[in-house]
């Protein structure tokens, strides 16, 4: 079961592998590229769009999606929007610029600092609205955590609002950049970074995102660096969550894709406490992955017994 991680084959023998790829998660990257390219072209054609826009953070997920979109429709039809907050890592922006330079796509810089500080105030902590949120504003360390959470969510939603505005001016669909791992554990902001017209990598675990990124030539620095939501200096996903992506990806793969029970994955070598914690995260994030329920009242209700494809004759704006 615990097979040694495969060294990704795309690059000529680096001194240290760029990342750890659990053997059971390895995909055929050639097929993945082809399938995703068809998917992207199909989504745009059916909606009557020729162009796409995405938020480019400097991280691996959005970098990979930029490469995939550029391959599918050409870099000239892609707009990447960089949307830093004043505390965002300058290195992130440098990485994003390297991706844009490599692809030759259009790019825009939209600072979200004024939007965020306009709401929270610019003190770096809660603004005047905090009292209105009740329990969220309770004191001590929780207050700081809640504050960071609220600020992070708000930033993600300002970026979403920006992208959907640019979607109109650029005449392109917003492409999602969230991966399967973060979607499953709920490490996303509802109506924030998870908002999109379609998502080409939402069924790829983080390890698979890395494998595909290496195959597509995403800059090595982007692949190697520790994943981070970059909501405060020095934050990384793995220190915040307390587990590594290869372990988490493997656990999710066996629990969900391979339908193994808790006892079965424990027998595979996973720590029971971790398994139970991840199970709770997945269950707790179910609501983030689904369209909100509508109270069933009439004869035909969207999503219940009114079931149409999102795109059909007449729905294209072209």
């Amino acid at each position: 079961m615990s097979e040694p991680a495969e060294t990704p084959g795309a690059d000529p023998a680096p001194a240290e592998p760029m990342f750890e790829l659990p053997a059971e998660l390895a995909i055929d990257t050639g097929i993945a590229r082809r399938l995703i390219a068809e998917f992207i072209r199909g989504q745009l054609r059916q909606a009557g769009f020729e162009r796409a826009v995405l938020g480019l953070s400097g991280g691996i997920d959005s970098a990979l999606v930029a490469y995939l979109v550029a391959e599918a429709i050409g870099a000239d039809k892609l707009l990447c929007v960089m949307m830093p907050y004043k505390t965002s890592s300058p290195a992130s922006q440098g990485d994003a610029e390297a991706v844009v330079a490599a692809l030759g796509c259009s790019v825009e810089l939209v600072e979200i600092t004024a939007m965020v500080d306009g709401y929270f105030g610019d003190g770096g902590v809660d603004g005047a609205v905090d009292g209105a949120v009740g329990a969220m504003g309770a004191g001590g360390a929780d207050a700081m955590a809640a504050s960071a959470l609220r600020r992070g969510n708000f930033m993600a939603r300002m970026r979403m609002a920006t992208l959907y505005d640019r979607s109109v001016s650029w005449r392109g669909l917003v492409v999602g950049t969230g991966n399967k791992t973060e979607s499953l554990i709920g490490y996303t902001t509802l109506f924030g970074d998870s908002a999109c017209a379609f998502n080409p990598i939402g069924d790829l675990y983080k390890s698979q995102v890395r494998q595909l990124s290496a195959a597509m030539g995403v800059p090595e620095a982007v692949i190697r660096k520790a994943p981070s939501a970059d909501l405060w200096p020095g934050q990384t996903d793995e220190t915040e969550a307390g587990f590594s992506y290869p372990v988490l990806d493997r656990l999710l793969f066996w629990r969900i894709d391979r339908r193994r029970s808790v006892d079965e994955v424990v027998a595979l070598g996973f720590d029971r406490a971790l398994v139970e914690r991840v199970d709770r995260m997945v269950a707790g994030a179910e609501f983030k992955r689904q369209v909100p329920p509508i109270a069933k009242l009439g004869p035909r209700t969207a999503g219940v017994d009114y079931l149409y494809p999102r795109r059909r004759p007449g729905s294209s704006r072209a």
Binding site: E24, A26, I27, D28, G30, I31, A32, L35
Partner: peptide
Amino acid sequence: PGRDLALSSEAGL
């Protein structure tokens, strides 16, 4: 519909 991109499968799919 294509699914399961596992590298271990003969056709890549």
